[in-house]
Computed example of a mutant assay.
Amino acid sequence: MNNKLYEIVEMPNGIKMLSVLPINATGVAEAYSTIRNSPGGVSKGDCGPFSTNLYKKLGLEEGCEDFRTACDAIGISDREVITNRLTAITDKVRIVSSKDLVDYDIYDEPAAPRADGLVTTDNSIALFNYAADCAITVMLDPTLRIIGSHHASWRGSLLGIFQNQVKAFIELGSNPKDIIAVVFPSIGVANYEMGEEAVKMFDDAGYGEFIDHSSFDKPHADLPRMNKHILLSCGLKESNVYIMDDTDTFSDSDMWHSYRRGPIIDGKHLNGMNGYFIKLK
Rank of each mutant, 00 (worst) to 15 (best):
I147V: 14
V102A: 12
A25D: 15
F202H: 00
D252V: 07
A88I: 04
S19F: 10
I35Q: 11
H150A: 05
G148L: 06
L60M: 15
N37M: 11
R261M: 09
P22S: 08
V189F: 00
E65D: 12
A111S: 15
I136H: 00
Y104H: 05
D248F: 06
V241M: 06
N240F: 03
L172D: 02
K4Q: 14
S253R: 13
L270D: 14
N191I: 00
E209S: 13
C47M: 12
T137V: 14
I179T: 08
I230D: 10
R260E: 13
I136N: 05
Y32R: 08
D254A: 10
F50Q: 00
I15E: 00
G195V: 09
T121C: 10
A205M: 07
F210W: 07
G48D: 06
D212M: 04
F128H: 01
Y104D: 04
N240K: 02
N227I: 12
S233A: 13
D72F: 10
L21E: 10
D217R: 09
A70Q: 05
I161H: 05
G45N: 08
C71Y: 01
D217V: 13
D222N: 14
M194R: 12
T69I: 15
R155C: 12
G188R: 08
V28T: 14
F162A: 13
V138I: 08
E62A: 10
D178R: 09
R36A: 09
K218R: 11
L140S: 02
G59A: 07
V93F: 01
G148N: 07
R260D: 13
S19K: 14
R155K: 14
Y104E: 04
N2W: 00
N2Q: 12
I147M: 02
N274F: 03
D217C: 09
A88T: 07
L144P: 00
H220I: 03
A168R: 03
F202A: 08
A126M: 02
S77C: 06
S157Q: 12
E10Q: 13
M17N: 06
M255T: 08
L140W: 04
M201R: 12
E7C: 01
M139I: 02
G59E: 02
S38Y: 09
V28H: 11
V189A: 11
E62K: 02
H150C: 12
S38L: 02
N24G: 07
N271H: 15
